[in-house]
Design a protein around this nucleic acid. Structure first.
Lengths: 236, 236
DNA sequence: GGCTGCCAACTGCTATGGCAGTTGTCCATG
DNA sequence: CATGGACAACTGCCATAGCAGTTGGCAGCC
């Protein structure tokens, strides 16, 4: 549905960057700054300082910080200051398990109310993934993976779910730096898992889709090093 | 832990109402107004109008509306207005399933990092529940139920989980008006489920706690009428 | 009558200024 | 030297004013 269809008689839409509010832009930028390491954990940040640094007023910055606090990335002590939250391995693991559960529910909902046309889009993404797996193109695989999950999120049509998973995905980029790049032997496994999820979607089986999605996210977190392998597995 | 301990040498804390920011107060008030029926779905609301109505500035109102939008309770069209979102039975069911999944994860995390002293508190809550069940005191049962879940949420220590479940709980009050009061025969079942969850916590079994908690929430949603009974059940 | 274009009254959004509370520093005092 | 208190430099929080974009309606024209 979101395929490139140029509508006749309508002007071209603005570059997405221009149409967003300053608060939204500040939110994304600050979030990226946190997960990428600048704005280190424990570092103090102030509304006015960031405002002058970003060239905007203090109000949008305040809104951005408030959203970041809801995400758990900063904590503000009233009248005392705002500091970047320290997200240790333990918390990262918790957030990963939360994300796995939510992704599972999203897959279940998507399986129920998926329109027929969307299946073609998933097939296309699977094709991209297969090509990326054979050539070991990590960038392309990452992009396809993003598309895959984002499309499932939006297929649910649930704004709460979409927003929550969007926030949780940010932490994903944070945990990835500890184990850069998946093991080559894990790429085919991820591909099979994605194929299995799409198969469950095509079968309109919410329970199966949820189970497969949740297992996929959990295993992906294990190979990324943010989760320990569950007990009772083969690992020397 | 949250039991009434008066700390020596410190002044008595203010009434919670006084220490909260105006934005936080506006958020809670507006959320309550929405779930209770005033501010009907589809109704337009404006920052300035609410500001004068609440006797505060437009800025805290704006923050409150932004949080409400993240919860999915209002949707604001840029430069056009803000309207109360219509939460139909279908969306209510989705949110219920999301809440069930998150409550399950919360129970699992609580089972892992529960300190020994907290078990006594759960035992006390169970006692209150048992008494309320025998006398069919719905108000006391509701209060005990709130305490039960809130304590589990805080036992996880995860701010993201706490905040998300707090937002989702608001919808719970919205769906309850369609089936006022549980069936009398369902009260003992709820009690048994709560006891089973506490038993899993005491056993430090995350998997069991999650399964029981999730099943409990789902069944509770079924008896409240927001969720249809799963296929393959005895119901004429 | 039906359509076009303009104008006033909204809307959300941002900038500015100032409030109250906290903290760190520096000087006066015991 | 150690201690206490006041001042200045912060902080987050809130109120006010004005911006830009949207909408409804009314006058004017075809």
């Amino acid at each position: 549905m979101a395929a490139a269809e140029t509508a006749r008689g309508r002007l071209a839409p603005l570059a997405e960057e221009e149409t967003l509010s300053l608060g939204e832009r500040a939110y994304r930028r600050l979030r990226a700054s946190i997960v990428q390491g600048m704005l280190p954990p424990g570092g103090k940040i102030s509304e006015r300082g960031l405002a002058t640094q970003l060239g905007i007023s203090a109000q949008p910055v305040r809104e951005a910080l408030q959203r970041l606090e809801q995400d758990g990335m900063v904590i503000t002590l009233p009248r005392r200051g705002t500091v970047v939250a320290e997200v240790g391995p333990a918390q990262l693991a918790e957030l990963g398990r939360i994300r796995a559960a939510l992704e599972g529910v999203a897959a279940a909902l998507a399986a129920e109310r998926l329109e027929a046309g969307a299946l073609a889009a998933f097939a296309a993404i699977l094709a991209r993934m297969k090509a990326g797996t054979e050539t070991a193109d990590h960038e392309a695989l990452d992009a396809a993976n993003e598309d895959f999950h984002a499309r499932i999120h939006h297929a649910t049509g649930n704004p709460f779910l979409i927003r929550s998973l969007g926030s949780l995905r940010a932490y994903d980029h944070l945990g990835r730096c500890r184990a850069v790049g998946s093991m080559p032997r894990d790429l085919p496994r991820a591909l099979r898992e994605h194929q299995g999820i799409v198969a469950a979607l095509r079968r309109r089986d919410p329970t199966l889709a949820e189970a497969r999605m949740r297992a996929h996210v959990l295993r992906s977190l294990v190979t990324n090093g943010v989760l320990r392998p569950p007990r009772g597995k083969r690992s020397p």
